[in-house]
């Protein structure tokens, strides 16, 4: 029984971050990691989301301190820029590491 509990505790799936481990949010983190700074409209197009849906995911990530949202104007047009924080970069790297471990574990069986 103890052995099973230890095995469960060591299972990579147990370490998955609920905030990050979501396809859309992982997509947001991946894009911002590559681009340094991304405009709201670009994310919406790439992830094929409605503005409302994307806003919800951005709020979750912003509250967790993984991204920074900056609103401004370019001429008369409102623009929202999203930047990955250092915490966000670490969370993305950790999540990818856990996913790789999970794959390795599944393949070992």
């Amino acid at each position: 029984m103890t052995g099973t509990q230890d095995e469960d505790a060591a299972h990579p799936a147990n370490g998955l971050d609920e905030v990050v481990h979501q396809r859309v949010r992982l997509g947001i983190l991946t894009i911002t990691h590559e681009a340094r700074r991304v405009e709201f409209g670009y994310l919406r197009t790439q992830l094929e989301l409605t503005a409302g849906n994307l806003s919800k995911h951005l709020s979750v990530l912003e509250e967790a301190g993984l991204i920074e949202v900056e609103k401004g104007y370019e001429g008369r047009r409102g623009r929202t820029w999203i930047t990955l924080t250092a915490l966000g970069a670490k969370a993305l790297a950790d999540e990818i590491g856990r996913l790789k471990k999970l794959i390795a574990r599944v393949e070992d069986r």
Partner: peptide
């Protein structure tokens, strides 16, 4: 990435992590 509802965070199939990683790399 086509959204169908946006609430669940499922990862049911055994090959999902691999597919997820592959999609992230493509993105």
């Amino acid at each position: 990435w086509k959204p169908i509802g946006m609430t669940a965070n499922s990862m049911s199939a055994a090959d999902d992590p691999r597919r997820l990683l592959s999609e992230l790399r493509t993105l």
